[in-house]
Design a protein around this nucleic acid. Structure first.
Lengths: 217, 217
DNA sequence: CTCAGATTTTTTGCTAGCCAAAGATACGAT
DNA sequence: ATCGTATCTTTGGCTAGCAAAAAATCTGAG
């Protein structure tokens, strides 16, 4: 499988997870910053090789084989992210680009030994689940902070947006995975939220809250 | 720089080190298992970009810029080999193919942090020197075992051939980096050598001895 | 010096991946 | 139902990388 094919499979996997159904040509083109015509080209190739189910004008979905392949790429990406953060002291906003490269290294032995070396982690530095070597993914129950009701206690477990800008904002505000958060109140006008973190009350925008996953406690 | 360009630079570097002078198109083609026509194509590109000095029919050599780039690729290759052996329990005959992939990952931060994580090693698992982050290479004094005189004590410090077959032979005969070897005698007929390793006398062929580097003690 | 053989370069043609433009299809509004 | 628009596919063409074959160049023996 070529590097380009792997990137398409991964993108389709993420878009499918987000939408729950078939993915459109344009959605793929936008996400990959390429043109729809290029996507159509590739979808035909992937379909010929039985990685995806593709019907003209109808969108695309992964086959069983394609789904497993995509999960293995995600597995590699997230394990490398753990390596970078846990072992090489990268910050969680610095790992994405390097992991994008490392995820294409082909060696089952390598990735399984890396998995063991890291202690078989189940989540990456952003809280996303790491598929195990058979492809199984253990999803964690999580809710967007923007949906939590006043008075509720919760704990930060993940981010929806993992851009460096957002992650740096969280660092600056001392919000990390595992941080306890108490929802205090919502401002009706702009949907901003007052929350309490470690005896500290702060106000965060709706945009921030709708990109932060928490679990209720 | 593309993956293909990196592989050419690395090959030219190794061939230059071995021959000491300009490298021929055919020598590169043979080493890379490709055709001379492909090599000529690439040499023109590399020359346009000022990585190599190239004159038609005259062979090729690295520019200052090309030499540094080649050393950085070798640095990455060897550091990843150390990682695979020291941290992931790979055997020294298993690391080459994976390191060939990992050497192309582009991130100066990654490679320098990996270097620190590994304790700034100066040699890879086969005894070859690792260029430091400025490109400096500390060559170790070494001699082929086939050139050692009878009665001489020495210590294994590297291999010339690092194929899996040769490395496995050394494993089977309990020869590793650091192993003490005493040269006993040479058989005139086939140049085979009798040596002593840890109170054990064995006979090795000339071919083996001429692929094993030692330092005299 | 000349020419045969070896080496190197050029030519030609293939595949992968990408894109612009043009044509085909789907779908909502009327 | 059909029209208009948004979306998707096809066509044709581009570049990079690779290789077989032909042409050019070099080299050494005589």
């Amino acid at each position: 499988m070529t590097l380009s094919e792997e990137n398409y499979l991964k993108t389709i996997y993420h878009l499918t997870a987000a939408s729950g159904s078939e993915v459109s040509t344009n959605a793929i083109a936008e996400k990959m910053e390429t043109k729809a015509s290029s996507v159509t080209d590739m979808l035909k190739k992937l379909s010929d090789k039985d990685w995806v189910n593709y019907k003209k004008y109808q969108g695309v979905s992964l086959t069983q084989k394609g789904l497993l392949a995509a999960k293995m790429i995600v597995r590699k990406h997230r394990l490398w992210e753990v390596f970078l953060v846990d072992k090489l002291q990268f910050a969680w906003d610095e790992v994405h680009d390097v992991a994008e490269q490392l995820e294409h290294i082909k060696s089952e032995q390598l990735i399984n030994r890396l998995d063991d070396f890291l202690g078989n982690p189940t989540k990456d530095p952003h809280g996303d689940p790491i598929p195990d070597r058979s492809g199984k993914v253990i999803a964690i129950e999580k809710v967007l902070l923007s949906e939590v009701l006043p008075g509720q206690d919760c704990q930060c477990v993940g981010v929806k947006d993992s851009s460096a800008a957002f992650l740096k904002y969280l660092d600056n505000n001392k919000i990390a995975l595992g941080t306890q958060i108490k929802m205090l109140s919502e401002e009706e006008f702009d949907l901003s939220l007052k929350i309490e973190i470690e005896q500290r009350q702060i106000v965060i925008s709706h945009k921030i809250a709708s990109n932060l996953y928490v679990k209720l406690i």
